[in-house]
Each structure stands twice: as C-alpha cells, then as structure tokens.
C-alpha cells in the first residue's frame, strides 16, 4: 500500500473515529494515523513535536476500542501528564486500534481539521523517515484523535411543541410557565421550570411522557405517542439526527 493510497483510504473512512466526531464544533481537531506495531515508541515523540500539551486537550485520554499495546501506551502517556478517563466523549485524546489487512511500512499521517498536514519542513519529517526506513512492515494502525474543548450538546433556548407533526407553540425556557395543549386523545400539560421543560400531565394511558426526564439540551425531546405529541428543545444542534 503506498502513501497516497493510505491517505486516500483514511480520509474516506467514516467509521475510524466513530466516538469522536465533534459535530459542528469549530474547535481545532487533529488526528494522527500511526502505522506501527510499537506505537508506544513513537507516540510520545510525535506528540512532543506537535506541542500537544495535556492541559489544552483536557488532560484525559481514553481508548475507543481494545488496543493490543494499550497498557504500554497508557504507561507512556501517564508519564507525560495524561490520565485515563471514561467515556471517550469526555476525553481530549482518544486512541483507537485498527488491524491492517496487509502490513505496511511504519509511518504516520497527520490530519488537522480535515486536511492532511504537510510535515516536510518540520522536525517531524526526520522522525517519519526514521520510522519508514528502519523497521519491518507493521500491521497495526493506531488512530489518535485530539479534539479541542467542545460542547457536544448545548442548552436550548426554547421548547417547540408539535401535535400531529405540526408546530403549535414555542415556549421560552427562560420563563417559568405551564400550558395546556389539545392533542389526539385529550390534552398534554407542559411546564417550564428553571430552564427545563417537563410534561406535568397527560391524558395518555401509560404516562411515559410524564416520567420522562426534564428536557433542556438542544435536540432533547419528550414524546407522547398516543397523543401524537412532541416537545423538542430548540437551539444550536451539533448532530443531524440521533440513534438510541
């Protein structure tokens, strides 16, 4: 596999960093694709050259999936001020492992904000050449994703009320209030309390909507299917849709 093919492949890979996507965040993000059977040997040097201070990247790292050199990587990172944490979405550095179907020359590629970084004029190029020249082929790809401080979900400003798929009202979250909405099988009473929206009462049978957690983050919803009722918090969205 040549370098161009490798870069093309990793850039077209949509699932390589499934747990890390910063959504619409404009914060800086940097991804290191490291082909090496011993990533713990070169990772500290590369990160030092990149100036990746743990304090800027939240100081916490995690593994996206089990890594064969996980313990060794953990050891070298902890020595440089990082500490392991969970879940992955709360950490500034996430390391994932991907086996290569065909062994390749040890090397690394840096992608900053979606663009491959040119390292030819930097000290990193010497490191790259050393790796590429001196070692046997490797079948281990380590993906180290550094994501800047981000807010994966923000507090909403308003709660939109839909019945039968049509928008009926918009309630400001900043003002405590309660309102009744006629719906498919009766009515639903919505309350806004301390910036959070709740269903106070509903004429549905099982009252699942009433026991739903209060909604306050943009995109959060409370659904009452029998009443064909939907409450959705409006605000800046970081995703297009949600699974779960």
């Amino acid at each position: 596999m040549n370098r161009r093919h490798f870069i093309k492949t990793v850039l077209s890979t949509s699932l390589l960093t499934p747990l890390l996507g910063p959504g619409k965040s404009a914060d800086p993000n940097l991804t290191l694709y490291l082909i090496s059977d011993h990533p713990q040997d070169s990772l500290p040097a590369i990160m030092r050259e990149l100036g990746t201070e743990p304090s800027f990247w939240s100081g916490r790292f995690s593994f996206g999936n089990p890594h064969p050199s996980g313990e060794k990587i953990k050891h070298v990172l902890c020595r440089t001020g990082w500490r392991q944490a969970c879940p992955a979405s709360s950490t500034g550095l996430v390391l994932s492992f991907q086996p290569l179907h065909h062994a390749a020359r040890p090397s690394f590629t840096l992608v900053r904000n979606g663009k491959v970084e040119d390292i030819r004029s930097r000290r990193l190029s010497r490191l790259w050449k050393e790796m590429n020249d001196s070692r046997p082929d490797s079948a281990c790809l380590t993906i180290a994703s550094l994501n800047g401080p981000r807010e994966p979900s923000a507090h909403g400003r308003t709660a939109a009320i839909y019945t039968d798929g049509k928008k009926r009202a918009v309630l400001a979250l900043g003002k405590d209030q309660s309102k009744r909405f006629a719906s498919a099988c009766g009515e639903v009473v919505v309350g806004i309390e301390r910036g959070r929206a709740v269903v106070l009462a509903s004429t549905c049978r099982h009252k699942i909507c009433q026991s739903s957690l209060p909604a306050s983050l943009a995109g959060e919803r409370i659904i009452c299917a029998p009443n064909r009722f939907l409450l959705e918090i409006e605000g800046p969205r970081f995703v297009d849709t949600i699974t779960g």
């Binding site: 499934p18 992955a88 979900s153 957690l213 959060e220 849709t241 949600i242 779960g244």
Partner: peptide, 17 residues
C-alpha cells in the same frame, strides 16, 4: 450525516458518527 449516539446513562451523546 452526523448521527449522535444517545448516552445510555447520561444526558447528551456518547459520541457522533
């Protein structure tokens, strides 16, 4: 498309696909 994975125990997302 950015698909948020609901966190099983907390508010917000586990991650984004």
């Amino acid at each position: 498309w950015r698909v948020g994975i609901q966190h099983p125990r907390q508010k917000g997302y586990l991650g984004v696909l």
